[in-house]
Write a protein that binds this DNA or RNA. Structure first.
Lengths: 353, 353
DNA sequence: CTGAAAGCGCTTACAG
DNA sequence: CTGAAAGCGCTTACAG
């Protein structure tokens, strides 16, 4: 924690020379460089990043704003961003808004106070209160994107991905399918719901049999939503498509709690392909999103934007894939061991599409 | 992104007055304050944190270094730290070392470059290469702690917690118990193994029947470790105590893959009490660690240390609890439906304690 | 190739 | 109560 003056004195040079030894060593006479390098080593000198940032007007830090850090899928994208950032000599500042708009805005403001050079935003709203800031401060929107002329986005084709999974379910013979969606504010959830509807209507010519209920991407919300769907055995779906894996885990729990089996009674599909999904029994069929690549591309786009703010804004769509699992089967695979009890249909949430 | 000079000019005062309007408003004449406040509002002025930090020699930022951010238990402790930090007006910088020593040291060095006022370290090693830095820079060690005279720690009593879970297993009648531990570098894993041994030996007077194999806290390592334990049906344990929930999830997968059932054939216990553990079927019995409180206390200790570096170093032990689950039962609950095949005993890893 | 000097945007004794 | 000035630790034209 010596400063540049200490090092300069020790090496018998000016502070400018010490600075150059670090940033442009080839501009120094080898002899001088050696003296400075030695002094740096002896003092354990590390330039103060605050002072560097102030002088250079660049912090080499990016802020990542997520809304649910404990969600393993989000964490894995964050990890990929961090990997790439580190390689590029950047620090990463993570803000977990916990879906609270106030926190989100606080992190956004913080970033613009010279703390970060740009923001990677995971949520469906801009991290600033005033839209015009988006034109001035580099922001990249990722996963659950929002749209703005000066904000690049990186995500999969959520609509097509949902269509693909629905095609799989329909292909297996399912005619009564439930969706457990994300919150109404989630743009990716809208896209997926659109895709699901398109696939269903495209195949059957109508939407009868497709039902949707809303979750909030937490396992508990998936459990509750599924429990609501099970309230009415007569209209019970034969397959459930959850818009993330955590909700699928919750749904599986609710199905088990009702004395039903996956997939014999109800097939379950997820979204994200988090690691634990592969460890469930049965292993969850889900939509794989390329977490690593999403993070990498997001960082690269942000870095480009920091370097040249006027360049064209690109919107990257990365490929998804269907991850096979044991949680899907054809409908009607179970003996009819459950009594009726046609109770309160659609009590909570579920609405026809 | 106006600067203080712009605001001062607009309000017709000096920059010193603008600074005071923010940090000590009561020192200004109400009239002046009003003019400045108005100018601040009109320009959307936010002080540059870099410049503030440089001048004040305080960044009001703490760095959190974890080794596995996607682990939901770790993420939940990080979230608690962030909550507390935000309330105290601090930023949080998260570094995910991914168990790589080089990255860990890089984050540690970064923090000391004026970027952070202190570090909360999750791993069992100090974040610096030279020990003496620990006396100079505030560090708090958390969860998987290391020990150093000037570093406060916060964790549960891992030894006692393991004893408690072992007592539960022994009380159910288990006589052949396997441990799936963390890596050898993990101090908390050592403590837990000690506790497990003490409980076993205390009850039986010997260690025959207690077996340990090593994992790395990932689900996949739990699966592999469990598969190795199942290699020899004759010596198969009737209960497995995994030193985190992710490994327990992996172990359950391996048990299912071998055609066995939890808990009928093998009881499984975990550690951490992550949210998904409650959603497994069967719900996992585990050791609850108070994530929220651990994070809160860790931040508070760090803040104290930043404020008064010379104060006494405290070591906080927070209470754990046993979370009941359906993954435990008495041994021998299953019919003997599996053939023998007494193959290669202890081929991989498992060693008698 | 090297140094003296200005300045990044703030804060805070020091005067008045 | 308010302002002028020094300085936090760097970097980088500008001279030489």
């Amino acid at each position: 924690m010596a400063d540049i003056r200490t090092v300069a004195a020790l090496a018998g040079v000016s502070v400018a020379t010490v600075s150059r030894a670090l940033s442009a060593p080839d501009k120094l006479r080898p002899e001088t460089l050696a003296r400075v390098t030695d002094a740096i080593a002896r003092t354990g000198y590390n330039p103060n990043a605050r002072a560097q940032g102030l002088r250079r007007q660049r912090s080499r830090t990016v802020m990542v704003i997520v809304n649910d850090l404990p969600n393993p899928f989000i964490a894995s994208v964050v990890r990929a961003i961090e990997d790439r950032a580190r390689a590029a000599g950047y620090c990463v500042l993570i803000g977990d808004s916990q879906r609270c708009r106030t926190h989100e805005l606080a992190y956004g403001t913080m970033a613009t106070r010279g703390i970060a050079d740009g923001i990677i935003q995971f949520g469906p709203r801009p991290p600033f209160g005033t839209e015009s800031d988006l034109a001035r401060f580099p922001v990249v929107s990722v996963l659950d994107c929002f749209h703005h002329p000066s904000v690049p986005t990186v995500q999969i084709d959520n609509r097509a991905a949902a269509e693909d999974m629905m095609a799989r379910l329909i292909g297996l013979g399912h005619r009564r399918i439930a969706l457990i969606t994300g919150p109404v504010t989630s743009s990716q959830s809208h896209d997926r719901a659109d895709g699901a509807r398109a696939a269903f209507a495209g195949h059957f010519g109508h939407l009868e049999g497709l039902v949707a209920t809303t979750g909030d991407y937490s396992a508990e919300s998936g459990r509750l939503a599924m429990a609501a769907l099970l309230d009415s055995p007569a209209r019970r779906p034969t397959a459930v498509f959850c818009f993330n894996d955590l909700m699928a885990i919750g749904a599986m729990k609710a199905i088990g709690a009702a004395g039903l089996a996956v997939p014999a009674d109800i097939s379950v599909a997820g979204f994200d392909d988090i690691e634990v999904a592969r460890f469930l029994a049965p292993a969850l069929a889900t939509v794989r999103q390329p977490a690593q690549e999403i993070g990498t591309v997001a960082f690269d786009l942000l870095e480009q934007r920091i370097a040249s703010p006027a360049a064209a804004v690109s919107h990257v769509r990365l490929p998804h894939a269907i991850r096979e699992g044991e949680s899907l089967s054809r409908p009607g695979m179970a003996r009819h061991r459950h009594g009726a009890g046609a109770a309160s249909a659609m009590r909570r949430g579920p609405t026809c599409l």
